[in-house]
Amino acid sequence: MAEEQSASKKPAVIRIKLEWCKGCEICVAFCPKKVLVMEGGKAKVENPGDCIKCMLCELRCPDFAITVE
């Protein structure tokens, strides 16, 4: 149990595959913690420490470009 708790508190690893990102901004607009921003027409991870791993960016990314671990 203790191990599980520490696992869930691990900081999120958010990866963005820039070659597949088309810059639709859906992930940026609906992130409840403002973790992501737009830069040069692509999504960029700005505040990874604030991520609560709700997974909404990964689920709603149409381009298979975001993963959250």
Binding site: W20, C24, L59, P62
Partner: peptide, 16 residues
Amino acid sequence: FPHIWCAGCGDGIVLK
């Protein structure tokens, strides 16, 4: 990939 759907097209979201 990347697929042909436009930026912000929901078809990729459905596929996932």
